[in-house]
Amino acid sequence: MQSAVSTVAESIQFLSENFPEFLQLLQEHLLLVIISEITAIAIAVPLGVLAVRHERLKSPILSIGNVAQTVPPLAIIALMFPVLGLGFLPSFVALFIYALLPVLVNTITGLEDVEESTINAAKGMGMTPYERLTKIRFPLALPVIFAGIRTSMVINVGTAYLAFFIGGGGLGVWVISGINLFNMPQVLAGAVTGALLAITLDIGLAVIESRIGTASPDSSQVAA
């Protein structure tokens, strides 16, 4: 217990002494996570829409997504090395692949779970399939899609630590070199900040989600 307390104290000291380096690593970490996440969303959401609109595409899209998620993150990271070498690009691609599925699955589930009666009502009012998608299905599916993005983001922050192995930088640098040097304060400083980052991003997204949730009925009223 004594040692745990002193480790915490030392890690705070370590963090303050190496603050510029910390900011540098945090920036690398965030950049990797955010760019890969945004790319994943940009691909997964349209792909989900496509899967819902074309029943034949759904099963292959979902199976590929499922396999991509089941393959261990370290395996994807490691495989990027022979293909793309070291550095930012292979790390980004690996994280992007890994971030894809939760968003994809939730997009499909969200769009499909809209009640049949709601869709029928929209049909009855004369909405086109496109209007039903943009005005009914998508707004109703948004909370589910957002939940997928949150899950994906939290996983992404954790996976990004592994990017260090293929030269992606980020907070993994402190943690892994800390393990190598048996420098526990450094490991703790790198780990806790990452966990806090994950939680912060999760809460941040939750806040945005609730904003959107309350905003959408208003905007639809304006539209009507």
């Binding site: 040692s3 892994i176 780990a191 994950a198 939680i199």
Partner: peptide
């Protein structure tokens, strides 16, 4: 849920001592 946000490598490193 919080436990899930701890990076695996970090958890390993912290438990080694």
């Amino acid at each position: 849920g919080i436990a899930m946000t701890i990076p695996s490598l970090a958890a390993f490193g912290l438990l080694v001592p």
